[in-house]
Design a protein around this nucleic acid. Structure first.
Lengths: 170, 170
DNA sequence: TACCTCATGTAATACGTTACATGATTAG
DNA sequence: CTAATCATGTAACGTATTACATGAGGTA
């Protein structure tokens, strides 16, 4: 049920079309909440039916620009303050760790080495993203940077853990 | 597609019934791959149909004990070594961070304070779990401890990040 | 005998992914 | 005039959640 809130959140900044939202997802939210094109257009229709967003302008090629309604903003605020974020997080990366015993020690260490490398690469990717963005003082910049910092710390942590873990296996 | 591998993984240790697997999930894998009762029984039927597990014993109350077949073990090994782990991790916790700008600074800091507390509690829960378990040298103990260590480091990281983040908001 | 735990299953619904399908507008 | 980009949508399928439904066996 969070894709809907992601869309409401993006629309709280400024009105946008499905296509716009798709592009903005790719460059920001995709890291924390991946979604496909199909899913977005479907969800936008549902949100419009529910009165949380409304078509505020039409453009060429059937473009429909959506604007957040008061009901939509209320729903967004409620999600942010009134619901517990205790969401179950699935990790196939960690799931595999439980079963490394069915492999040879070499294979198991190989898997952990892959994780080390993956973490390094993601870390570097985020570093470059950080440098490429012109950070301002606006709310978006502040919170975007906070999320990015999470990614950096997370990947640094995971890298160190994977290296430590490889040492535990003999 | 990972629930199936979680079940194959558990059955690689020893034969078990759906009910047994359900209990073992609750006390170990639930943290990395939550699954419901319905889902498990359905998946076990599919795995049996696919020849990856087989009914090795029947007990009272219709109990069916499943055993991993050679095909099942091969599939498990293939998943571990031959498939790339998805780093597609959804996090509604982090998603909210992007939109804290629609709240007052007090509310935003309140949210981050909740995350700090949540991380502390999870950390403590894992510490207690760590102490309550009699760790041996068997593969299960080694890999279970590695996964647990990840949880500890992750929550420590998240706590520090949430405290830092609260300081970024004015 | 009554209650708890063991034990399995199905149905309805929601959410997510992949693929298919179509067409308008703009830039070179 | 051709290709890329803009722009929207539907269909089929797979996975996940919630609720419903049933009953055997052990124990107080």
């Amino acid at each position: 049920m969070s894709l809907r809130h992601a869309l409401l959140g993006l629309l709280s900044e400024r009105p946008a079309s499905g296509y716009d939202l798709l592009k903005r997802f790719e460059t920001s939210l995709a890291n924390v909440w991946p979604a496909t094109q199909s899913q977005m257009y479907t969800e936008l229709s549902k949100l419009a039916d529910a009165g949380m967003i409304s078509v505020s302008a039409q453009g060429p090629r059937g473009r429909k620009e959506y604007t957040l309604t008061d009901e939509g903003l209320a729903e967004l605020r409620h999600w942010l303050t009134g619901t517990k974020p205790q969401r179950n997080t699935r990790s196939d990366i960690l799931l595999r760790v439980f079963f490394l015993g069915v492999l040879t020690p070499e294979q198991a260490r190989g898997y952990l080495a892959e994780l080390t490398e993956m973490s390094e690469q993601e870390y570097e990717g985020l570093r470059q993203l950080e440098e490429s963005i012109d950070w301002g003082d606006d709310p978006l910049s502040v919170h975007g940077r906070i999320a990015l910092e999470y990614g950096l710390r997370f990947n640094a942590m995971r890298r160190e853990w994977a290296e430590w873990a490889a040492g535990q296996i003999r």
